[in-house]
């Protein structure tokens, strides 16, 4: 067991966990932040995407100890109170989710895309979502939501 210090959604937290504990399990099991989901065991589906020091990573492919001292942002940290992050709102407006299981990872990835590309075109969004699987939407409305979310984030910046 080791004691791991993390900063999650702006709060300093400590997790007491096995060395093998993945960041995703630390978030879900130890911190009860269950919005970060696990959809595969081969680092392919992207449901577990969170930001570590401002960059989207798959939280199933990094040990919690590797993230010690890092600033971690999860889906739970996006909205302020009842006010949604513009990307969250865009997913609602454009019906960018159906079952909602891949959605937290999609939204975290979408924000990362905007952080790096500003206002990406459709082709860029499609290419950048290569690491996120959705089985419900055919991606069609996710693409629309990300483009619209990017516009809104740009307007707010």
């Amino acid at each position: 067991m080791s004691r791991i210090e993390l900063r999650v959604n702006g709060r300093n937290v400590e997790v007491e966990a096995d060395g093998r504990t993945l960041l995703t399990h630390a978030l879900r099991d130890h911190l009860r932040l269950t919005g970060t989901h696990i959809g595969c065991d081969t680092s392919q589906c992207g449901s577990c995407t969170v930001h570590v020091d401002g960059k989207a990573v798959k939280s199933c492919t990094i040990l919690a100890v590797q993230a010690a001292g890092c600033d971690i942002l999860t889906i739970e940290g996006l909205a302020s109170g009842r006010e949604l992050h513009p990307m969250q709102a865009a997913f609602n407006d454009f019906h960018g989710l159906q079952c909602g299981f891949c959605t937290p990872g999609m939204i975290m990835m979408a924000i990362d895309i905007v952080n790096r590309h500003g206002r990406p075109d459709e082709a860029t969004v499609r290419a950048e979502l290569e690491g996120n699987l959705c089985r419900c939407t055919g991606y069609h409305n996710i693409i629309k939501a990300v483009c619209a979310g990017a516009e809104r984030m740009g307007e707010m910046a």
């Binding site: 879900r28 919005g35 696990i38 996006l78 609602n92 019906h95 909602g100």
Partner: peptide, 21 residues
């Protein structure tokens, strides 16, 4: 009509079976 179930799912507050302990 925009979906009413989205609010919990886009904020990470959906409740799936594995979330329950």
């Amino acid at each position: 009509v925009k979906r009413v179930e989205d609010a919990r799912l886009i904020t990470g507050r959906g409740r799936f079976v594995d979330d329950l302990v």
